[in-house]
Write a protein that binds this DNA or RNA. Structure first.
Length: 273
DNA sequence: CATCATGTTATAAT
DNA sequence: CATTATAACATGAT
């Protein structure tokens, strides 16, 4: 499910409980999401306060002390939600962090998501710039494109070291805005166009998906409700999965195929191969 | 029953 | 060594 804007929205669910002390931690020790971290280790959070949080790409980091952070990745089907203190464990709830006011829940039925615990000051110190950051510069993109001349555009966009936070639908959206066939090789691309449209889609997604609903309600969201936050109708997003879906620009029927291991939708007219 | 899903990663191949 | 391609992971919806 989650790309950078959905991840940011998920982070904000738990972020509503910054400042609250942790009274209990329920874990499912066998769940695959704990493959990087023994589940019982999470009990160290008990008695600590959730101080702050941030996101980078598709990762979230929840800070409980200067050198104690919980990292969460949602994988394909992970969800963060909050519920009342009497929340009873639902199917595929793998982690429930309890405070006096709420239950913070991580649910993931496919278990491609993951949990990590960090005991250093800044576990993300060496991360590459995100598309929405000013550091996502033209020089940076030139370097990326130059390093991957035989890589398809779509594969570059999906590379989390290159474009952190971009996933399948945003990658298609970016290719479509560029007017470039997703299988086009990086060697043939204009780095300025890659930068421009990647930033447009990243910033637009944050605005439409992450921010919009945050002002819609002040007392939280029902679990999963945020998935209804979607980009506008003139984005490819709204048309790419409909059968017989058409290009919002030229109304041609969209094409579909697997590119860079993922199902890809594009407009054969606006993005000729 | 077969196919597909907004993701990553270990391993192979070039 | 660096870059690129593919299979595997687990569950549910269609």
């Amino acid at each position: 499910m989650p790309e950078l804007a959905e991840v940011e929205l998920a982070r904000r669910q738990w972020a509503k409980h910054h400042g609250e002390a942790i009274s209990g931690v329920d874990v499912h020790p066998k769940a695959r999401i704990y493959r990087d971290c023994p589940a019982p280790a999470l009990r160290i959070l008990k008695g600590k306060k959730l101080l702050s949080s941030k996101a980078h790409g598709k990762r979230m980091l929840f800070t409980f002390a200067p050198k104690l952070h919980l990292e969460v990745h949602l994988g394909m089907s992970g969800k963060l939600s909050t519920s009342s203190t009497d929340h009873e464990e639902q199917k595929h709830d793998h982690l429930i962090i309890r405070t006096k006011k709420a239950a913070l829940i991580f649910n993931d039925y496919r278990m491609f998501g993951r949990i990590m615990l960090h005991d250093c000051a800044d576990p993300w110190a060496e991360f590459p710039p995100q598309p929405q950051d000013p550091k996502f510069s033209l020089a940076h993109i030139r370097k990326l494109v130059g390093r991957h001349p035989r890589k398809p555009l779509k594969a570059l966009l999906l590379d989390q070291n290159a474009c952190p936070g971009i996933g399948n639908w945003m990658a298609d959206e970016i290719c479509w805005r560029m007017g470039i066939y997703p299988g086009e090789l990086c060697a043939n691309l204009d780095p300025a166009a890659v930068r421009k449209e990647t930033r447009f889609v990243a910033l637009g997604a944050l605005k439409h998906v992450a921010e919009k609903n945050m002002t819609a309600s002040k007392d939280g969201f029902a679990p999963g409700s945020y998935v209804e936050n979607v980009p506008p109708k003139n984005w490819l997003f709204q048309h790419r999965w409909k059968k017989g879906g058409t290009c919002p620009k030229c109304k041609s029927e969209l094409a579909r195929d697997t590119i860079a291991t993922r199902t890809t939708a594009w407009c054969p007219t606006c993005q000729p191969s």
